[in-house]
Design a protein around this nucleic acid. Structure first.
Lengths: 198, 198
DNA sequence: GTCTATACCTCGATAGAC
DNA sequence: GTCTATCGAGGTATAGAC
């Protein structure tokens, strides 16, 4: 919730924490690991984030903000297909980085966390699914996207498939083929696989 | 590789280890947690699995065997659609259990592991994708399954989507809708949503 | 704010009695 | 085979000087 202003220690800690979570998971790094990356001592982390639960919570909250802010730059004034392409392009940025989606990683380790963090992870996916559902509904109205079930159901399928692709993509070290994978979800596959964003 | 004969201590340890990994991940439980579940002391675990890496490796190997053995009871003498349904039914068994696929969980925590375990996780998905690709190819020949690209590419997409559905399904505590998500693969969707496996 | 120093715990792992 | 006992390392977290 704190403004991500400058290169403050707090901001650096949060950014490196996100990186560590995305690659190794929250149970896979220690305060010392994080402190070394930023160049401080581990006691300094406790000054900003008293417990690891606090750090985790702030990390997922900030990630949620960042992702949604990036996505929402493409509002309903753009065609749905273009908005959807922009979403996929964002996800594809994780390709080849040894990182998963932070939300996906926390979802995997979900049972290790407090209710507070768990709820935040759920909220992250809820927000994302809601946005995708809106785009799908718009695409249906424009006649450019067709899918099975309600926009909400299809959006959930899209978000799930995205997570699966990230997981398998990192494991096999092969490019994502996210678009091709998602094309199976759409009725009009031939049109959907054409790149719509120049 | 050891025969999973009876209720030996070793077998019980392996089963409970699999359970713990599927729910909390390998970094989310300790030797003491596992020992308590089986009713032995943690030193006993070291007798069977000298290091945690050994335990992990055996767990993924055994899981690989179990899954592939279950899948392979449906061989090419059955229609592809029926084989595919059986596969989805198996996956759906994880629904509502707080468990993920063991392979998927290890794939998430991948960067924490040794090369040996990493390779085993890759082998797990490779075997599964190979089987699914075979079924998809058969379905294409029989005219009952339709997909984009090669059977191998489509199989990878299927396996990725399965993992994503498990991840999101546990998070939101809603039923999987795995079939609906993958329903676009089926040529005759109207028929496909009816249960094909009694 | 950041440090040093440290408390206190849990971890994986080992030695040796039985 | 399973136990008790214990080790050393590393974990989160805190106190207090600066």
């Amino acid at each position: 919730m704190v403004a991500p202003d400058a290169n403050t220690t707090r901001t650096q800690l949060l950014e490196h924490a996100q990186q560590l979570i995305c690659t190794r998971g929250c149970n896979g790094f220690s305060y010392r690991d994080l402190a070394d990356l930023v160049g401080v001592k581990s006691a300094t982390i406790h000054y900003y984030f008293p417990s690891k639960d606090d750090l985790l919570f702030e990390a997922i909250q900030a990630y949620n903000m960042q992702v949604m802010a990036g996505i929402r730059t493409h509002d309903a004034s753009e065609p749905a297909r273009q908005r959807f392409e922009a979403y996929l392009a964002r996800v594809s940025n994780l390709c080849g980085t040894n990182r998963l989606c932070l939300g996906g990683m926390l979802a995997a380790e979900l049972m290790s966390y407090s209710d507070k963090v768990r709820t935040a992870v759920q909220a992250f996916f809820h927000a994302q699914e809601k946005w995708v559902a809106e785009v799908l509904a718009q695409g249906a109205a424009e006649g450019t996207l067709r899918f099975h079930g309600t926009p909400e159901e299809a959006a959930r399928a899209v978000c799930a498939t995205v997570q699966g692709c990230l997981l398998i993509g990192r494991l096999t070290r092969e490019p994502l083929k996210l678009r091709e994978t998602l094309s199976a979800l759409f009725i009009d596959n031939g049109a959907a696989v054409e790149p719509a964003v120049p």
